[in-house]
Nucleic acid binder design. Structure first.
Lengths: 260, 260
DNA sequence: GCGCCTCCATGACGCAGGTCAAACCGCCCT
DNA sequence: AGGGCGGTTTGACCTGCGTCATGGAGGCGC
């Protein structure tokens, strides 16, 4: 049991690292950051965060800004401080596949080679910390825990990616919508990982129907129709366009997982 | 230019590591391994490989053995020495999505939490090195380069995963087949990364039509029909069931990327 | 309040790809 | 050589979802 160490907990095996005296200005700036205790930064001490802070450039972007462009040289990594971001790939004729969303604390840029293999666009006003590749690489040498944490992050994204492949390759429209609602509930901490949300849990969807369609590999019409079906059958309520109430999570789960 | 260090080359920044005298028996066993100069092991010195060797259990499996089962406790990591393996997720009603293939040198188990989130099955007789989580974690402390290399591996898999999401979510049947053929050519080193294979390049497909269908989110009938269409139009030749000749890679690429 | 614009819902219809069925093709076994 | 068997191809048909079109609902400027 004890030996069954979670692989997503490899950060538990922290090596001792040299601690330098971070300047207080830096640290306290991070104190106010919504991402201070999420994602990458949560694994770091105040001193380490201070070091990271000094290596970062801060950016504030209005909604709808594409700040990572597929095919461009991949010069930077990003950490989201506030706001939500959509990640996507496009085909020349305009077809788009959203591969994921990044909110506060999420680290961007792991799926990259020399060129970015995806684009990123702010869905709302967004604040970011930006790191050059060189800066991040040099930080690895100083703070090995970063590397370890990034491996955790990458592993988690691999898990999500595989789930999404099953969804896109093999699930029906209704199953995709049900799966999405439950995974979004988990993301919003409405329920603990793996558990079902309580009946009548309410979700906020900062995404448009178009985003939803491009994420689930459907059209907006099919998304709309599937949501209507779930509503008609009493599994969800849609008080307004950006809100969904999960009336019967178990029934949603049965659909999402194609329970027999 | 020089500062544009590839992120997939972060292993270039090797920290000095303690080198212990590996016993020669171990090292020479690895010398014969097809995976010695691929994937994880390629990043390691003989001494490091020797250490890894002693931490590993070797397994030989016949074709069709499921050795990682979705939902089971994730106790081990694997490194493939020889043979090919399919990775997949299933729904209770039997629908299956193959999320990837692993050949010699590939490392398995990164997409895992406490439970495996995918299954793995040998497609042919396979030899593996198996590591318990605990063993791998303790190796991280001794050989940080492992962690770094695994981050590289994970990042590369994220890139592949995003490509596959675009394919599954937004491409037509023919586009999927064309994309697959080109990516398989790249995998088989028929062409360098990013470049097109030469006209008349020949590919070996160790996969059945069923595998192909489950990988591409199609049915075997559609896979078969799409291959026939490409053949009829003179883009490929199919001398036998496990071989495909790419007559006009550029035309395939135009289809795969939906060139306008 | 009014017009405009964007996003969403819903209905009618079409088609890419799924389903069902039959023929075909090695390949092994005797 | 013949027969059985699993995998593949091909054809005929069907359907889930995409496409196209229309109407509605909310937001925003003036």
């Amino acid at each position: 049991m004890q030996s069954m160490t979670s692989l997503n907990k490899i950060t538990d095996f922290r090596r001792p690292v040299a601690i330098n005296l971070a300047n207080r200005t830096a640290t306290s700036a991070c104190d106010d950051c919504a991402a201070r205790h999420h994602g990458l930064c949560e694994a770091l001490s105040d001193e380490e965060v201070g070091f990271l802070f000094r290596a970062a450039q801060r950016q504030t972007l209005p909604a709808g800004t594409v700040f990572i462009e597929e095919g461009e040289a991949a010069a930077y990594f990003y950490n989201v401080n506030s706001g939500n971001v959509r990640l996507f790939k496009s085909l020349p004729d305009g077809r788009r596949q959203i591969t994921g969303f990044a909110g506060p604390g999420h680290f961007l840029g792991l799926a990259a080679t020399e060129k970015n293999v995806f684009s990123a666009e702010s869905m709302e006003p967004v604040r970011l910390c930006r790191f050059s590749r060189a800066a991040l690489l040099s930080m690895f040498a100083e703070y090995p825990i970063l590397e370890r944490k990034l491996l955790d992050v990458a592993m988690h994204e691999l898990v999500l990616g595989q789930q999404q492949m099953l969804l896109l390759g093999r699930k029906t429209a209704i199953e995709r919508i049900a799966s999405f609602l439950l995974s979004w509930a988990e993301r919003q901490d409405v329920c603990s990982s793996g558990a079902l949300p309580k009946p009548h849990s309410s979700l906020t969807l900062p995404l448009s129907r178009t985003d939803l369609a491009d994420y689930l590999g459907l059209t907006i019409e099919t998304v709309s129709r599937s949501l209507s079906t779930l509503k008609r059958e009493g599994l969800i309520e849609i008080p307004n366009i950006h809100e969904v109430v999960l009336l019967r999570p178990q029934a949603l789960s049965d659909i999402a997982e194609a329970a027999v």
